[in-house]
Amino acid sequence: MKEKLNGKDLINIGIFSAIYFVIVFITAMLGMVPILYPMLTVICPLVGGVVYMLFLTRVKKFGMIWIMSILMGILMLISGMSWYALAIGVFSGLIADLIFKSGNYGSSVKGVLSHAVFSLWIFGNYLLFYLNHESYMKTREEMVGKEYVDKLNSLLPMWSWVVLLAATLIFGLIGGMMGKSMLKKHLSKAGIA
C-alpha cells in the first residue's frame, strides 16, 4: 500500500538529513586525528543513532530512508569524499528502507536493524582507499621508500575491509539501540518522539 510522499515528508527528510550530516561531520572533524581515522566508522553511527531513530518515528512511508541515504551520499560527494558513499548508499538505503517497511514502520527492532544497514554509507568512504590502494601506495613509495610502505601495508592489510564493514554494522546496531534508549529517556518524556 504505497502512499505518496508529500511536501511535509520531503521537508522532514531534508531536515533530518541535514542534522544527521552535521552531527556526523562535526564528529568526524573532532576525530580527525589520523590514527583514529578507521575509528570514525565506529563513532559516527554511535553518534548518529539517536537522530536516525527519531527520524524513524516520523517515517511512515516508503522511500524516506532511501532518499536520506542518497542525500548522505550526495553530501559526501560535495564535501570532497568522492562518490563511493553515494554508490553504497543507493543500495544500503534501499535495503534499510525495506527492513523498516517489513515491520510496518512500527517495530523498533527493525528500526535498529535498518540503522545498521543504513550506516554502511560511512563505510563507503573507506572503499575509496581500498579500491585505489595500489595507486596510492605507488606515490607513497616514491616519497618514503618501499620499506616503509611495506610496513604500513602490513599494519592495514587488504582483508581489513571486512573488519571495518563488520564494525560498521555492529556499531550501527549499537548506535541504533543507544539512540532508542536516549529517545525514551529524553524525547518521549518531552513529548517530541
Partner: peptide, 27 residues
Amino acid sequence: IIVPLLSSSIKIGDELSAAAIARGLGM
C-alpha cells in the same frame, strides 16, 4: 549537544514546513 540541537531543529523544522505548505509548496 544532541538533545538541545534535536529539539530545537525539530521545532524549527515544523514551523518551516507549516509556513512552506501554507504558501503552496507541494508535489
